[in-house]
Simulated scan of single mutants.
Amino acid sequence: MQTDNLLKQVSFIKEIDKLKYIQRKTKLFNSDRCENDAEHSWHLAMMTIVLAEHSDKPIDVLKVLKMVLIHDIVEIDAGDVFLYDTTKSHINTDEELIAAKRIFGLLPIEQAEEFIAIWTEFEDGITDEAKFAKSMDRFEPLLQNTSNNGGTWAEYNVPHQTVYDKKKVIKEGSTTIWNYAENLINESVDKGILKK
């Protein structure tokens, strides 16, 4: 049984290496290179560890870490949909659920069920852990875009109100981080790197 579990786990580990090839639109800090999903997930995990004290509610940091590390694995099959895409909804949960069942299904049943449950909890965004995880997910690209003179906002001509509406979910997990983020959005308008 242990050998069977190990073989399934190694199969999963090999499969998720594909996450390194999923390119995001957002570029690395002060760079013209797009980040990939694996880099994004790692960065969110570090942000969670560093910024957890700013959560409005007590959170299980390990659970948040699991969320931010696995939330984009489904994009191996479903692809990355740009947050500001005007032709396809960023919320493609049906496609992603199929992907979650296939990819997490490579694991032993108990782990597969846990990962699907954690992924679903993140997607639903109701628990304190999910709210904080989503805060990290929206905060990181905001920091990247402000470091890149507007980054994808400028490149795709994303208006201020759209950015504001997409980023205000940060407030659900952390008022402190939202206040900081909102200030960065306003400064970006003042600097002309985000159109009002």
Rank of each mutant, 00 (worst) to 15 (best):
K66I: 12
V74K: 08
F82W: 07
H71N: 09
F82Y: 14
V64H: 01
V68T: 08
V81Y: 06
K57S: 10
I70G: 07
V74Q: 09
V81L: 06
H71F: 02
E53N: 13
V74R: 11
K63W: 13
F82G: 06
H54I: 04
D80R: 15
D56T: 07
D77E: 15
V81K: 11
V61W: 02
I73P: 04
V61S: 03
V68F: 02
V81R: 09
I73A: 06
H54A: 14
I70W: 03
M67A: 03
D77A: 05
H71E: 02
D77Q: 13
H71C: 03
D60V: 14
I76S: 09
D77M: 09
I59M: 03
V61F: 00
L65S: 05
I70T: 09
K66D: 13
E53K: 15
I70Y: 04
I76W: 07
D60W: 14
G79Q: 06
I70H: 10
D60S: 08
L65W: 09
H54L: 10
G79H: 07
D56A: 09
V64C: 00
D56I: 05
D72R: 02
D60R: 13
D77L: 04
L62F: 14
L69P: 00
I73C: 02
M67E: 00
D60F: 08
D60T: 13
V74L: 05
K63H: 13
I73G: 10
V81G: 08
A78V: 06
H54S: 10
E75T: 12
V68S: 00
I73E: 09
V61P: 04
H71R: 05
I70D: 07
F82I: 01
L62G: 12
L62H: 15
H54T: 06
V81N: 11
I76E: 08
A78K: 05
V74H: 02
D72H: 05
L62W: 15
V68P: 03
M67H: 00
D72S: 00
D56R: 02
V81T: 09
L69H: 06
L65M: 06
I76T: 12
E75N: 15
E53H: 12
V61M: 04
S55P: 08
K63D: 12
V68I: 02
D56N: 14
K57D: 11
D56S: 14
V68Q: 00
H71G: 04
G79L: 07
L69M: 13
D72G: 00
I59A: 01
P58G: 10
V68D: 04
D72V: 00
V74F: 05
V64D: 04
M67Y: 00
D60A: 11
M67D: 04
L62V: 15
L65I: 15
L65E: 05
I73N: 06
G79S: 11
D72W: 01
V61G: 06
I70K: 05
D80S: 14
I70Q: 10
P58A: 13
I59Q: 04
E75H: 11
H71P: 01
F82M: 02
D60I: 14
L65R: 04
I70L: 10
D56C: 05
G79C: 01
I76R: 10
D72C: 03
F82S: 07
P58I: 13
